[in-house]
């Protein structure tokens, strides 16, 4: 299928990441006593790396389905945003829509959101190819790690830190994106009122991350390591709702500047095109004049 050929190169970074991480996940599961088919199963039906790593912990603790559900909803909260962003792009995908939505992982969302469908490729089949390939990478990694992980003889003590490292990296990614937005907004201000990034703007821009960390630490100290997740979620939701107005103001202002910038870029491109056309017409006239002479 030609869509598979078109999609495959785009998914290569996901291939390396998912297979590597999947292998670690499979190993982590089996070294904690779980059967090899379990990580393969979760890779198929849960298909959320961060959640699956947490499952290792959750399944080793005492039975608490309410907390598990709460965690799944919190971790999955970002899927809600992905869905909102893909509402239009996944329209008209017919029978494939269920699978496309089901397999919206972070990386698949990123790929399909940015995708420029190549000429001659069917849009639905392209999205399908990307989603399918990504999930197969993850499932394969998990299977490899689960079934063949015991053959690895290097000491694996401390390998579970990979989960911490993953969350820290995702957190950093978000933090730095926000920092970039702050810089862009400061630079975009007109020369007269160009100002350094104020502490207030800095706090408001990073408010989601700061709220997440501060609210969790607060609840961790009060409720202890086994009980702090649900209270943290409530506290985070409450704080974010309370500070909504100022945070939204900063975020919306940044989006406006982004839009102005892209409108400005489009306008510049138009000017450039018109200038080029004028030069061309002049050149044609000059050539015609020389001909006459």
């Amino acid at each position: 299928m030609r869509e598979l050929k078109c999609a495959f190169p785009k998914t290569i970074p996901v291939l390396t990441g998912y297979v590597f991480l999947g292998i670690i996940y499979g190993i982590l599961m089996t070294t904690n006593g779980f059967p090899a088919w379990l990580p393969v199963l979760t890779a198929l039906v849960i298909y959320t790396g961060s959640m699956e790593f947490l499952m290792v912990d959750i399944l080793l603790s005492s039975f608490n389905p309410v907390s598990a559900l709460g965690t799944a909803l919190m971790i999955g909260a970002r899927h809600i945003f992905y869905g909102i962003s893909m509402l239009n792009k996944y329209r008209g995908t017919g029978k494939a829509k269920f699978y496309l939505i089901y397999t919206t992982s972070d990386e698949t969302f990123a790929l399909n959101y940015d995708a420029v469908i190549p000429h001659g490729c069917d849009r639905t089949k392209y999205y399908l190819a990307v989603s399918f390939l990504d999930q197969m990478y993850w499932v394969s990694g998990a299977a490899l790690g689960a079934f063949f992980g015991s053959m690895i003889t290097i000491p694996v003590q401390g390998l579970d830190f990979v989960m911490t490292a993953m969350f820290v990296s995702i957190f950093m990614n978000q933090w730095m994106k926000d920092r970039d937005e702050l810089k862009k907004t400061a630079q975009a201000s007109a020369a007269e009122d160009r100002k350094k990034i104020s502490l207030q703007d800095w706090i408001l821009r990073h408010a989601p991350e700061l709220t997440g960390v501060a609210g969790s630490v607060f609840c961790l100290l009060i409720f202890g390591p086994d009980r702090f997740i649900v209270p943290s979620m409530i506290v985070i939701l409450a704080i974010l709702t309370l500070i909504r107005k100022p945070v939204e103001a900063v975020y919306d202002a940044a989006e406006e500047k982004d839009q102005e910038a892209s409108v400005g870029e489009a306008a510049e491109e138009k000017h450039q095109k018109e200038a080029d056309e004028m030069n061309q017409t002049e050149a044609v006239h000059e050539a015609a004049e020389e001909e006459r002479i």
């Binding site: 971790i75 909102i84 969350f167 957190f171 978000q174 989601p208 997440g212 969790s216 630490v217 702090f228």
Partner: peptide
């Protein structure tokens, strides 16, 4: 709004969770 802010906040929570 929630779609924009809940995500980063959750990963803050998860980082704290990892070090709990």
């Amino acid at each position: 709004y929630l779609g924009k802010v809940l995500g980063p906040a959750v990963f803050g929570l998860l980082c704290v969770y990892c070090f709990r």
